[in-house]
Each structure stands twice: as structure tokens, then as C-alpha cells.
Design a protein around this nucleic acid. Sequence first.
RNA 1: CGGGAUGUAGCGCAGUCCGGUUAGCGUAUCUGCUUUGGGAGCAGAGGGUCGCAGGUUCGAAUCCUGCCAUCCCGACCA
Length: 490
Amino acid sequence: MSKGITSRAENYSQWYNELVVKADLADNSVVRGCMVIKPYGYAIWEKMQAQLDKMFKETGHVNAYFPLFIPKSFFSREASHVEGFAKECAVVTHYRLKNSSDGKGIVVDSDARLEEELIVRPTSETIIWNTYKDWIQSYRDLPILINQWANVVRWEMRTRLFLRTAEFLWQEGHTAHADKEEALAETVKMINVYADFLEKYMAVPVIKGRKTEKERFAGALDTYSIEALMQDGKALQAGTSHFLGQNFAKAFDVKFATRQGTLDYVWATSWGVSTRLMGALIMAHSDDNGLVLPPKLAPIHVVIVPIYQKTEQLAQLAETILPLKKELESKGWTVKFDDRDTVKPGFKFAEHELKGIPVRIAIGPRDMENGTVEIARRDTLEKKVYPMNEAVERVTCLMDEIQENIFRKAKEFRKANTRQTDSYDEFKEMLEKGGFIMAHWDGTGETEERIKEETKATIRCLPLDASEETGKCLLTGKPSQRRVLFARSY
RNA sequence: CGGGAUGUAGCGCAGUCCGGUUAGCGUAUCUGCUUUGGGAGCAGAGGGUCGCAGGUUCGAAUCCUGCCAUCCCGACCA
């Protein structure tokens, strides 16, 4: 917990430790890249979860839960889906252990081999569509609008805390519709829900857009994503919503009787966000003093630090602090009275800043004399003294101000780091500075691939709000109708 | 899976080249006193399979062999 923390992603580890640590599974030579989310980190995730869940329900969705294990055969039904995930699946082959014959430990019981291997879900499309098959006979059974909160496992070759761990927490929505238009509308609706969540709650501005064919979800006809820019200039895909067409319905033979009396395959969507959003939150707002949390997602809104010399004085201060705490709580704020006598005030200040608590109130003998409090805001680190009777009102105003201010700062940062170019050489120079680059592209996978190979930049998305503009492809000079969003990404 | 580096106290490290007292430092922890409006000071104490397994040697954290793990760069990444 030393100073010199930086908001650059490479150096996050010091205060990442407040939220999450890499799981210590060193004795196991196989499991790697798993994380332990500590209580404070998990509290932030719970806040995010609660808000997202509310938004899903407001848009007509309900929660359900499907199994962790998926029979291997389910995967072979949708060809491109398995191709996308096959290389990163954990496979269960046995169901029992026994004492080893030499008496030295435990071994897998080779008699307990499963007839068909089970796959630990990397995503749940296959098992859900296998289930939906039994639930859908008629157009009257549609739409099905289900969300699941779960963990998934993807055996990534290289992991990074929050951004890409072997096991992560997420939600996945899986919907079934009677017609294409409705499914398409659902896909767009959910990418908008995600964008609202990031901008209004996480205070992280995003670009909504469609993925190129290469970057598309395995098995999808169209993938929408939201792309956020981190403080180190790299892009982060923060959420996706997929239009699956009839691919999964065909793979799992999910037909329904239409209103017209014919049989048709069901139209599908899926959409998800994960604990990666925590990474986004951290990397978008943090500064050298640690985390900066938007008030709407902070587990603790206000911390009150008493300043005193003798324990009698603490009791006296508590007489003022406890009513203030109660009043703040009655306004809906979560308040922590940090009355620990084991650390000094300066230590508490630093610690709460590290944790990103939006507002700090300090009360000491000086304030008792003058009837004042000192209020400090985390985003600007500004401290001011106010009359005691204005404290509650001031805190309430500050919450809105902080929420707005960090969103505005993030937007300004993105604006300052979004560039436009028509020259490939300039494009390469710009990439070194980081940030988003708007450029023309001829629409082919070959060009996309070549640019990626030569520059490590990928097409993050084809922004939904891009205006028509004729131009020439950055690389090939072929005609293009609008600019697309390039960046180096996580 | 390729290239590079690393593994020594909870955390961060020195010591390894060139084998040789009881393996050391910072920090954290515990005790006492003084402190307390921005990460306290002094004194004392506890804490180690030196990644694992073999080998060489009178003697191994140090040399040799094998294995394991971690990190970085690639490959990979809805």
C-alpha cells in the first residue's frame, strides 16, 4: 500500500489486491488463472449485479439456472460454435477418486470413467437450447426471455485478473422469438441496456457498434458490442449482444407451430457481461491514490473519521457522529464510522482513498468547538469545511457531482484520445499513442487480418452512429462508405 | 506450445557467478512507552521444507540433472 500507484494497467497489482487476488493453486499443476474476489471487490460486483438485474427485469426478463456440466455431444451440433470454443474447454472424464495402491495419496479411479465426457460450460447456449426444445411447441410459448447469473470456465492460454481469468462470473441472457424482427430488436435492446448501465452507473462512456465477421461470436449472425477506452489507451470490449438467427434452433431442432399453422425454426439472441466490468471500472477511473468509484456503485458512500487523542474524546465525538450517520443513512447513503483506535487518521484517509469511497467526513475537537465538519471528495481530493447543519445536504449534492464529474472526465479523456486518419503511416504513429482511431476500411476480412498482423490493432466495431462518408480504405485504397473504430485492445 | 526471466518469512527483496559461522534486509505481525487534523517514533519479540525430487561434496540457498510453478513477449482470446 505504498504511494506511486499509477492508473496504468500494468501497475494495477498493488491495489488490485484490495479487491482480488490470483488464486494460489500452485500445488495443482493444471488450474491456473483463477481469481479470489475479496469481500470489498465482491461488494462492488454485488452492486453491479443488483442494478443490472433490475434493468433486465424492467425489460421483461426473468432469471433461471442451468447446469454447469454439458455433455460433449451437445457441442458437436453447432459447427462454428464448437470451433470457437473447443480449444478452451475443461473436460470432466471421471467421477471418483480412490486411495492410491501405494497408500501415498489420492488418485483418479480409472474404473470411474464417464461414458460421455462432460464439458464445464464456457457459455450455455448449447445446454439451454437443448432445454428450450422441450419448452417450445407453439408461437404461444414465445418469446422466452431468460437470464442466468453463473460462472463459466474458459481455458485461456494467458490470463489477466478481471479481464481474462479462467473462471469468471457473468450473466448470460438467452432469448427465443417467433420472428426475426423481434429477435433483432431484442439484440439491440440489450446492447442499449448495457450501454446505459456503463454510462449512467459505471460512468464509463462507450461506443455501441457491430462486430466484423472475424470478431463475431462463434455461431452468431451478428454481434453488437460496447467498447470502452481505458486510461492506458487500450480498448476494452465491455459487453456483447448476439443475434443468433436460427442457427441454434436448427442445431437443436427447436421448431414451433406458427400463427399461420406452419412449422418454423425459432429465432434466438444471447447477451452477456462479466466481472470484466470490474476491470473496466477500475481502469477507467482510478488514479495514483487508488480506486475512484462512482457513487451509484460504491458499497460505502461516506466514511466518517473521528480525530481525537484520548478515548474519552472519541466517546464525546460519537455523540455528534452517530446522529449524523443516522441522518445520512435515512437519505439512503451507506455510511461507515471508522472508529478503529488501532490506526491513525492519516492512515485511514489513505486507506479509504485507496478503496475509492466517494466522500469522507472528518470530525475532530476543532470542529466540535466551531460546529463544523471537514468534507473531502474522492474524485478531486478537494477538502472543505462546512457548518455541521449543512453536512447532509452537502453530501447529497456531492454524490451527484462526483457521479457526473467522473463521467465527464472519462468522456473528455476519450475525446482527447479519439483520432481520425486516412493515411496508414499516420495510423501506425497514432497507435503508439493509444486510443481510438476512426478510419476507412474496405470491408474485407483479408484487410482486417493484415492490419491486425502489421499493427496489432483490431477493428473494435462498426459504430452504430457512424455517419455516411465516402472514403478510401486505409490499406488497400478501395472505396468505403463509413469509418470504423480501430484500437489496440485487451 | 516457442523466446526470455524468476522462485529465499504474510508481502517485496539481497545472498547464488566464486559452496564454508546460527540464511539476511525492508515491510507487515506481536508487546511496551510516547504519539494521533494526511500512511508515526523508539525499544524488544515471534515468524524459514531457501519451489520439488535426485545427485556431487567433509559441507549445498549456492554446483549438476530432472520436474513443477509464476511473470513478461509471442501464439490464443464470445
